[in-house]
Nucleic acid binder design. Structure first.
Lengths: 347, 347
DNA sequence: TGTTAGCACTCTCCTCTGATGAGTGCTAAC
DNA sequence: GTTAGCACTCATCAGAGGAGAGTGCTAACA
């Protein structure tokens, strides 16, 4: 059996109506609401075919039909009109994006809030990956007796400061010397790249400051390596999920929100199989908590390099056209903001 | 009508049983479970009195009784045995508190997690108030052409760094001079203390670096004043609320979680009317979302000075004895950790 | 006078029932 | 190939009735 034009029209009608009403769609409803020029009986026949093809299913005998995951997939890939953003939404995004923003975190949280507000769904934002954060420069500043401030400038421009214990006896010259050696030997390297060779050099050149160096290295370890791994995902509008009829069930809500508290599953959800825009529908998500959900995600770039991703999570019964348009526009706007504003936090 | 010993015993029995079962308590249940030496009929008579006194109420005719807010209040004030922590819990807290922790944020999030895990309720933690964060010291470090790193050490020991735009033409000596003037004039002052007098002096001494100073002041504004106001409250175990039978209702959950997203109401909830341990029961909370909730909160100290608070939020039907013991022990442990570890972030 | 047993009464909760209505699949006619 | 007609299925809802828990009242008892 093949899809023909009428089957396509009927499938589209079913998906659209179900997205709008969250109720199983019957043949009469389609005949009434969508002008296909055929009777309910004919539509019933076609619907039987569509069910056999796996695009729709019946919750129970003699209920209407609802789209299956495959049905949504066919809809997204073949039936959907490319929708454009409403001027209103466009304006909101643009107005927001012209605000002056200096911290990268603010950009991320803004984006997250905006996405969830526009879609009335849950947003996921993965902040700019900082890239392998190599050592850039080290400074020491006086703090308290026996302690100094160690300021580390990473190669990607991020600046961090940490308090380091040093003996009371250390002199400003000693500190300067330590910084000089580090700056000379470690520039451009991440810590695990240098573990063996360079470390030996540093140790031998600065044998007297062994205590300080150990402390400094411990800090560097945390600063340079830790930062990449647990890049948090920003969630926005999680409460919107509670408005969706598919989450009337408290147990479902509980298990969903439990997953929201972890980072790994969300990352998996968001990180695309390929560059650009991705649509993951229902069971295509591996996690069972997301079996009734779809994710529209997209990556964004700076200097042509992909450095992060945004996404929207909602029930499979979501308005794909609208959400895709919003996510698409948003990533472009974001790319632009980042290129223009150069907030701190990435190279 | 007066409370006598038997009424007290019965009220205690009702509260304890209702806390344990979440079901209205009948006279027969009390006679069976608690050995009062009287028949259900007698207990019924007493219960009628207790109802008249306002300590218990009936959800509907011929259901058992449940404690009213006043009943809980009487229970907490007069009937509760001072409970001590189980050795198990004590050990958990102490094990946790011996971990080496260097960032104040970690202490706060640890505390929050621990509280919610031990009580199976929701925890609220207000991190150490940083106190009026006065200016301590300013340093400049080279960054990129036209930009420098401004490192601000506040008087309370917190170190922050920010990138500041300077002209390309500025020299290291100029920067040093700016820093010197700031360090000399502003030490110990918060920004709004100096707005008029000192600012004029700084401007006149450094008229050439007007642009840099404006940028620096803008930063200082954000660093020194902003930090106090919106001190966030850490929430832990919000999902535990979903396990409480009083939150079976999705609408209740929704409005509760909505409040969780705001800071102000939570702060009101947590900040005590007086030093030490506070118990706020049901309607004693002003916000209607918390009418079915109680809060056990307590302040903690460093160097004898109250600098923060922790609390536990649960349904009015919570195990007051246990929770009070946990909160009490926790604040003491926290006070100790902070006194010992001296993590960064407060004076 | 306080306590208790007995009893009628109330109200929730659960289950069963039948009616309703939406929607289907099949068949036969167009 | 399309359509009208019709029997059938199943969820949903309201109402009825029984079970069970618990009460308040009364009268008897110590």
């Amino acid at each position: 059996m093949q899809m023909d034009e009428r089957k396509r029209k009927i499938l589209r009608a079913i998906v659209q109506d179900y997205i709008a009403t969250a109720e199983p769609v019957g043949s009469r409803t389609i005949a009434r609401k969508f002008d296909l020029g055929v009777s309910p009986a004919t539509i019933r026949n076609e619907m039987a075919d569509l069910e056999e093809l796996g695009f729709i299913e019946q919750p129970y005998t003699s209920a209407g039909r609802i789209p299956s995951d495959a049905g949504y997939r066919y809809f997204v890939d073949c039936l959907m009109d490319a929708q454009t953003l409403s001027d209103e939404d466009k304006e909101i995004i643009e107005r927001e994006s012209t605000k002056k923003i200096c911290e990268i975190q603010e950009v991320v949280s803004h984006t997250s809030r905006l996405l969830s507000e526009l879609t009335s769904l849950t947003s996921l934002v993965l902040g700019p990956q900082k890239g392998k954060s190599a050592f850039g420069k080290m400074h020491f500043l006086p703090y308290r007796p026996g302690q100094v401030i160690m300021v580390i400038v990473k190669e990607n421009g991020v600046v961090e400061n940490h308090i380091v214990d040093v003996g009371e006896t250390i002199t400003a010259e000693d500190l300067q010397k330590v910084a000089d050696v580090f700056n000379q030997k470690m520039k451009g390297y991440s810590l695990n790249q240098v573990k063996r060779s360079i470390l030996h050099e540093i140790y031998s050149e600065l044998s007297r400051q062994r205590h300080l160096i150990d402390n400094a290295l411990e800090m560097l370890d945390a600063i340079l390596d830790g930062s990449e791994e647990d890049e948090p995902i920003y969630l926005g509008g999680t409460l919107n999920m509670l408005n969706q009829p598919e989450f009337r069930d408290l147990d479902k809500v509980k298990s969903l929100f439990k997953v929201f508290e972890e980072n790994e599953p969300l990352k998996k959800l968001l990180l695309p199989r390929q560059e650009g825009l991705n649509v993951t529908i229902g069971g295509e998500n591996t996690l069972k908590e997301f079996r009734d959900c779809s994710v529209i995600s997209a990556t964004y770039k700076v200097n042509g390099k992909t450095i992060g991703a945004v996404g929207v999570l909602g029930p499979t019964r979501m308005d794909y056209g609208k959400v895709i348009a919003i996510v698409d526009f948003m990533t472009k706007s974001l790319t632009e903001v980042l290129a223009r504003g150069k907030p701190r936090g990435y190279k």
